[in-house]
Amino acid sequence: MKIRDILKMKPDTTSGKPDSKMKKLLIILLRVLAVLVIAIVLFIAIVFVVNKISSKSEEGKIQPYGQSVTVDGKNMNVLIQGQGEETIVLLPGYGTAAPALDFKPLIDELSPFYKIVVIEPFGYGLSDQTEKERNTENIVSEIHEALQRLHIDRYILMGHSISGLYGLDYVNKYEDEVIAFVGLDSSVPTLSERKIESSIIRVLNLLKKSGFARLQVKLGDDPYAALPYDDTTKEQLRILIHKNMYNPNHLNEAEKMYDNFRAAEDLTFPKNLPVIFFIQANHPVTDRWIPEHEKQIQDSVNGKMMLFEAGHYIYRTHSKEIAENFRTFMEQVKPDN
């Protein structure tokens, strides 16, 4: 082939077409990826900003209740209602945003007959937070100090959920002060919670700081929607859920929970202490719920258990039945009966 013939030949461009198509496809993918990244970053920023603005706004909407008691140099919030001769000290379950408001249906049923004292531990309700570890020893000591500050030295201890664990330690340490113990679907040391790793705690802390904890609550069901709380109380409960959810004290208590259960495994209720449990009849996770509670009172002189077709927050839906049966029980265990 002569040189002039070679020069007249048209260049073969077909081999470049696949490369050109790939480049165009790559550019499109990069643009889509960039849009997605921008959208995600923008979404995260919006969630963060909305949470900051909402939290600031809600601070001014909180309506104070109860009274402040100085415990370990900090303010612990306590609600006192009723003028009865006997005193009931109410202790909340883990993570209850505002115990004094959450217990309202039960308080209203009991306060005509008893003096009701609701303790909001550090990190709960309107109480301050503390730097101390949320182990059983510290929690029990702080509750006792609050009662001492209020000059309350004889009382019935009534605890929901995890307070069954703290209450078990409490009645052994201050046996001379406690008249009776009442468990509201209370925890049992032998049914231990799983150990929560530090990595999970860090994730929950990030959810709180980023604002996604608020979004989580917003997308979930309203636990108070169908319950007998007035609209003002429901609104305050929602505000305090956002305020206290995953706060440092709650996270530390969750991290210490496994150890707290283990530490209580060998504890039993004093034999002569009246004990009554109000328990859900069908626990959704374990079939040992009822048998393990029965074991706790098998040696009690005055031990009783009552079952309800209810969820874990039994006092929200069965406050009237609890109050009536509790009063009957206390009449039956009086020394002169």
Rank of each mutant, 00 (worst) to 15 (best):
G93T: 04
E120Y: 01
D153P: 08
D299W: 05
H242D: 14
Q280N: 13
G303R: 02
S187W: 01
S15E: 13
I201S: 08
F212L: 13
S192G: 13
Q129F: 00
G159I: 05
I239A: 01
K304C: 03
D19T: 10
G123R: 01
I107N: 04
M9Q: 15
I40Y: 10
F277M: 09
T328Q: 14
L147S: 02
Y246F: 15
G167H: 00
S199D: 14
L273P: 02
H160Q: 13
L30F: 09
T286Q: 09
E294Y: 07
L168I: 11
Y174V: 00
Q83E: 15
A254I: 11
L126I: 08
V118H: 02
T317K: 08
T328V: 13
Y174F: 15
P18H: 03
L204I: 03
P121K: 05
L101N: 07
Y229K: 04
S20H: 12
N302I: 00
E109P: 02
H293Y: 01
R202S: 15
K104G: 01
L227D: 05
T70Q: 14
G303I: 02
L168S: 04
N272L: 12
G66S: 05
M305F: 11
I38Y: 11
T70D: 14
K61Y: 07
I200K: 13
F329I: 03
S319Q: 01
I290V: 14
V118E: 00
L157T: 08
G159Y: 07
L79N: 06
V178M: 06
M330Y: 07
F113Q: 15
V35C: 13
P121D: 07
L267F: 09
K334P: 05
I196C: 06
R262A: 11
D72N: 15
Y155L: 08
V275H: 05
V203W: 12
I27C: 10
G211E: 00
G167S: 08
M76Y: 07
N138T: 13
Y229M: 03
N247L: 00
L147M: 09
E294H: 11
